[in-house]
């Protein structure tokens, strides 16, 4: 009885405290897929190329986002699915889509997200700008495997497709 009691006490403590920590402060998730190559799951690591990243949840609650940050978000098509993408443009920006066919104005409260691996990513080029309310965390570190441990840098898009004004339409 003493053992079961102690075990129950530990569970009643550990489960809510860890759930609160994961929800409020941050959590570690495995990255699936190739859409963020070469930064995440680089191809040269072969079959064992699954990276685990730390998702910072605290900074998402503040709803402050920058161009170039890597974020996880709830898929707009399926609420049970999560994507990891990079924020390319913020509200008020204009973006030329990857196929160069049209310019999109990012509406208030929204952002434009893309995978780094162009052409192999389901992102805003498919589903359009997303509400920032769908963002669940900022990926700030690779924490596993050990030889890949590093900070994830904020990298704004290099090519000139993103305009912090309506300039895209003027071209």
């Amino acid at each position: 009885m003493g053992l079961i009691g102690a075990l129950a006490k530990t569970v009643v403590f550990a489960v809510p405290v860890s759930a609160t920590f994961f929800d409020l402060i941050g959590t570690v998730v495995a990255v699936e897929g190739v859409s963020m190559q070469p930064v995440l799951n680089p191809p040269e690591c072969g079959n064992s190329n699954t990276d685990y990243v730390f998702l910072n949840r605290l900074s998402v609650n503040a709803l402050q986002f920058q161009r170039g940050e890597i974020v996880s978000l709830v898929s707009p098509f399926n609420p049970s699915q999560r994507y990891i993408k990079r924020i390319v443009a913020l509200e008020g920006d204009t973006v030329k889509t990857l196929d160069k066919e049209k310019c999109v104005l990012v509406p208030t409260g929204h952002c434009w997200v893309e995978g780094d691996h162009h052409g192999r990513s389901v992102d805003s080029n498919v589903f359009g700008p997303i509400s920032t309310g769908l963002i669940t965390g900022k990926a700030t570190y690779i924490v596993w495997p050990p030889n890949r441990m590093q900070r994830l840098e904020v990298q704004p898009a290099g090519e000139q497709r993103v305009y912090q004004t309506k300039a895209c339409f003027a071209q």
């Binding site: 409260g109 509400s131 920032t132 309310g133």
Partner: peptide, 8 residues
């Protein structure tokens, strides 16, 4: 629901 235009 979170407001789509203003998630806070």
């Amino acid at each position: 629901c979170k407001s789509p235009k203003s998630p806070k």
